[in-house]
């Protein structure tokens, strides 16, 4: 495995701590002994080909899938013992569109704020904040089905941030989104990280990988590399992350 020497140091600031995490579906091992950590406030990229096990890993960390064995804490909470407690501290944006098409922009935000137990005033303030930030003031009462996909994705991200989570998990958030919107989306991600919220993101786009503080590359359920994008390029004597990815994925 290609890893920097200091990987497992600095425990206190680690918002995600995973050790020997295994997930099996019958005889198939989707996650094979994952060990890594994520520091508070960093943008952590999770790369891998389709079927490499990224989504399985992310779903376990979110408490959507029960792990088979190993240890893992998210925001200081053990995901084996208390997956429901984890959910209060995380935001999640899946690759599938997760807002309601038959509700308006405002109604969607109000609903998600409500089920996180926020007060009416906080819901209104934060929804207004995000709607204004996205420049969607005019679309506040528009049904979501009438709004372009890129905007919907930004709104889904906002909905995931509404309850001020410690960490946001994003599973291929920019799939099917145009390059301009993708750029704006990453600006939002940077802003969010600056506010101290940790970002855990999976992606297929290698240019996006370069925006991350650190990336891990998964092949066939295992993490085969984990470091800053620059360090990985240097170590493998590659020209860019794209080449790194192809080299690692092919080698396996």
């Amino acid at each position: 495995m290609i890893m920097p020497d200091s990987t497992l140091l600095n425990f206190d600031s680690n918002i995600i701590q995973v050790k020997n995490l295994v997930k099996k579906f019958g005889h198939f091992t989707a996650n094979d002994n994952l060990t890594f950590h994520v520091e508070k406030g960093e943008i952590f990229g999770f790369l891998g080909a389709n079927g490499a096990g990224k989504t399985t890993a992310i779903r376990q960390l979110c408490g959507l899938l029960a792990p088979t064995s190993g240890q893992a804490t998210v925001a200081g909470i053990d995901i084996f013992k208390n997956p429901e407690k984890v959910k209060e501290r995380i935001g999640y944006m899946s690759q599938r569109f997760s807002l309601y098409d038959d509700l308006t922009v405002w109604e969607n935000l109000r609903f998600y704020g409500g089920i996180y137990g926020l007060s009416n005033k906080i819901i209104k303030d934060r929804a207004d904040y995000f709607i204004n930030k996205l420049g969607m003031g005019k679309s506040r009462n528009t049904l979501l089905r009438d709004i372009p996909l890129g905007w919907k994705q930004k709104l889904a991200f906002s909905a995931a941030l509404l309850h001020h989570p410690n960490i946001v998990f994003m599973d291929e958030p920019t799939g099917g989104v145009d390059p301009v919107t993708r750029r704006q989306f990453w600006e939002m991600i940077y802003q969010t990280a600056e506010e101290g919220i940790t970002i855990f993101v999976t992606t297929h786009y290698m240019d996006e990988a370069e925006y991350c503080n650190r990336i891990s590359i998964m092949v066939d359920g295992r993490i085969v590399a984990l470091d800053t994008p620059k360090a990985l390029v240097k170590k493998l004597k590659a020209r860019n992350i794209n080449e790194v990815f192809i080299m690692l994925a092919r080698k396996e």
């Binding site: 979110c62 429901e84 407690k85 959910k87 995380i90 999640y92 997760s98 807002l99 998600y112 996180y116």
Partner: peptide, 13 residues
């Protein structure tokens, strides 16, 4: 079917 259940499942509801 529309996938929103996953979003709900990831909340503390």
């Amino acid at each position: 079917e529309i996938g929103t259940i996953e979003q709900l499942n990831v909340t503390p509801l």
